[in-house]
Write a protein that binds this DNA or RNA. Structure first.
Lengths: 193, 193
DNA sequence: CCTCAAACATGACCTAGATCATAAATTGGT
DNA sequence: ACCAATTTATGATCTAGGTCATGTTTGAGG
């Protein structure tokens, strides 16, 4: 899916400064958002205020379709992690896109499958495995996206918010994993090797 | 999607007796399975042998696509909950179906979105909420599928395997929820009201 | 209307991870 | 290079829910 095509079609490009909220739980979905630049995080917040990161979306990706496709209010907040430019594609336009562009619809199916796969994996982890196992699993998952020698640009707090653990537990956990040689860490940063 | 069409196309109908395994984690996906009759459960098993129910699929539904679509080995076991008849649709046939039948591909997109929605909800629960909240959430979710006055045909063990809790905790939890009037239970069975 | 396996129930621990409190190390902006 | 704000670190409790052990109830099949 080429974002330029959407812009050419005359769709509005909206700017969201870092920290601004794109949508909130309970809102009725009306758009699918394509990211021209920047990064957003999708988080649910529990009754007691604890955040859980459902996903992080970057330039070139889109988000917000599942709720729109099944016509249910959003479950999560979506918040700009950095200054971001988004293209809001209306429900009608999006449905048309899916109907008339088999390549896009195939791509969408793959994207949804991939997210489903990730969520299944995380569910199994949260439901059954203990802290360290959980930690090692997301760390390895995240390491998959980067090159050898690079380090994970992710804080302990973010790891906590992705695993349902608390910062202190993540800190103690990563330390332990490093001691056991299961991960390598330089100045606190986790590096791929 | 009409199952009869698949049968007419000459696809083989396979029988799986209750308890038999359709596929296992690690296997390379080659088919999508359409359920002609019966019921299957998809479960992941932790290192310590704890089961987690990823999903339950019934007559008319299909399963196994995500792994196949993104070409990754299965994460879960799929096991017949009852004697079942399944139609195994090969990767090639399935891709063709998606490509050439826009209605089916739209339907698939909706199905994937719905599952994603459920998993997002459960992830938030497992990551952040405590036992009773978790319990109430799946119970209400399951109650959505049945009529007033009917009762949930689900054991405490199954509820445990869906929430990542232990039977004892589920038993104590449902009792508490019933005492507080949040659910109604008759002879142990949870009934919709 | 018995029987026996499966499902529910309940009490007594025990531990992983949450909480709380406090401080050291990094990082980024000027 | 300096300072404030994040982020990481560590120790001392506390507790929800797991674990173990031992009943009691339910309901399906003969």
């Amino acid at each position: 899916m080429n974002i330029q095509i959407l812009i050419d079609k005359g769709l509005k490009l909206k700017s969201y400064p870092k920290g601004s909220v794109i949508y909130e739980p309970g809102e009725q979905p009306r758009y699918v958002y394509f990211i021209k630049s920047g990064e957003v995080r999708m988080v649910t917040v529990s009754d007691e205020g604890k955040e859980f990161i459902q996903g992080i979306f970057k330039t070139g990706q889109y988000f917000g379709e599942p709720a729109l496709l099944i016509d249910r209010p959003y479950l999560a907040f979506t918040i700009a992690n950095k200054d971001s430019q988004l293209i809001a594609v209306s429900k009608e336009d999006f449905f048309e896109l899916v109907k008339n562009d088999p390549d896009f619809s195939m791509e969408l199916i793959r994207t949804l499958s991939k997210r489903l796969f990730y969520k299944s994996m995380m569910l199994e982890e949260l439901a059954s495995e203990k802290a360290d196992h959980r930690l090692l699993t997301i760390i390895n998952y995240l390491l998959g996206d980067i090159n050898v020698g690079e380090n994970l640009k992710v804080t302990r707090q973010e790891l906590a918010d992705m695993t349902g653990l608390r910062v202190e537990t993540v800190i103690r956990g990563t330390k332990l994993l490093a001691e056991n040689g299961l991960i390598k860490t330089v100045k606190g940063k986790i590096v791929k090797l």
